[in-house]
């Protein structure tokens, strides 16, 4: 009898171990990669690297929150990158140094930073609201609705980009107030990290402490049930897209100054990085599941991996293979969890 119960415990704990392992397989793999990086270059464990990783993650995180909210409602947003690009071009075109040779608006006065920021957010939110409206009213799959918006936005953005005084040329020579606001640091803390932290807190409150947040998860988990229990599904969907648009606007505003220039190709492909980070962070494509901490984890994982692999001098083509495999693995695990849920 004793032997039997010991065997039972052993079997059980083995099962539990297995489940624990499967559940967290993706993190285990990522931790293994990080361990590998640290072993091959112990210098990776330094304050500078830590700070750089946080700084590089900042804009990505803000964008991931935007698309993350949409993913919770069972959606996706392919127009993210172009929206960020448009916001970057708008902000950049309005914030060039007075003495810069080829200004977009040659006679523009020095604007307070908040004006271009709000304008960038308003434009991004406007186009994003159209996405939300199309998805909510016409029941078009978000993949297609936002694919259309991605292409449309590129057209609009390129027309605006070409309309500046010097013609279609990269926009640079930014006002030092703007550059300092974005890439400067205070008490050793990079401003970008501070902004990302503030946005994280706001998004956490919105997702967890407001009616909008409750509706968001309800709509994402089961739109029919949400509707029956009195949630305005369309309004919730449009709101989450508008919120995403505002975040893209902020992201674009920060991105132009971070890169030091903006053009109509800025932001290209960012949607895929943001979506991948959300998925790895456990924001489920099947809807209704996802946490602020998940988005943070996902973004940090990707930044740490690409930073670390570049740090040890690994060819970027191997990095693509590893990142691609991680995304597929994350989705596979997500699907497994979903099957269990139903």
């Amino acid at each position: 009898m004793t032997a039997l119960s010991i065997g039972k415990i052993r079997a059980m704990s083995k099962e539990q171990w297995k489940e624990l392992f499967v559940k967290n397989a993706i993190y285990i793999v990522i931790l293994a990669i990080i361990a590998f990086i640290i072993i091959s270059e112990p210098a990776f464990l330094s304050f500078t690297v830590f700070r750089n990783i946080l700084t590089q993650s900042a804009v990505r995180l803000i964008l991931a929150f935007g698309v993350g909210g949409i993913i919770i409602t069972q959606g996706t947003d392919l127009s993210l990158g172009r929206s960020v690009g448009f916001a970057a071009v708008i902000a950049g075109s309005l914030l060039q140094r007075a003495d810069y040779a080829s200004r977009f608006y040659p006679d523009l006065v020095a604007l307070p930073l908040v004006v271009p920021l709000l304008l960038a957010c308003a434009v991004s939110a406007f186009f994003s609201a159209i996405n939300g409206w199309v998805v909510a009213k016409f029941k078009i799959h978000p993949f297609l609705a936002t694919l259309g918006m991605m292409i449309t936005l590129y057209g609009v953005l390129s027309i605006y980009f070409a309309s500046g005084a010097p013609g279609p040329q990269p926009i640079g020579g930014f006002d030092t107030r703007y550059t300092e606001f974005v890439i400067g640091s205070t008490f050793g803390i990079p401003h970008l990290v501070i902004y990302a932290a503030i946005v994280s807190v706001i998004v956490w409150v919105l997702w967890n402490k407001t009616t909008f947040g409750k509706n968001l998860y309800a709509v994402g988990g089961n739109p029919e049930a949400a509707k029956v229990s009195g949630v305005n599904v369309s309004k919730t969907i449009i709101l989450v897209y508008i919120m995403a648009g505002v975040l893209y606007g902020i992201g674009g505003f920060l991105e132009a100054a971070r890169i030091g220039s903006a053009n109509n190709g800025t932001g290209f492909g960012y949607e895929l990085d943001a979506i991948a980070a959300c998925v790895v962070g456990g924001i489920s494509f099947s809807g209704g599941i996802g946490k602020v901490s998940g988005a943070i984890t996902g973004v940090l994982m990707f930044t740490i991996i690409s930073y670390g692999m570049t740090f040890i001098g690994m060819d970027q083509y191997y990095q693509y293979i590893i990142k691609g495999a991680i995304i597929v693995a994350a989705v596979a695990l997500d699907a497994k969890k979903y099957i269990k849920k139903t």
Binding site: Q56, R258, I259, G265, S306, Y307, T310, F311, Q316
Partner: peptide, 13 residues
């Protein structure tokens, strides 16, 4: 063909 990727590659390496 991405300036932000290049900036990050330089910083990371």
């Amino acid at each position: 063909n991405s300036q932000p990727i290049q900036n990050e590659q330089i910083e990371s390496w």
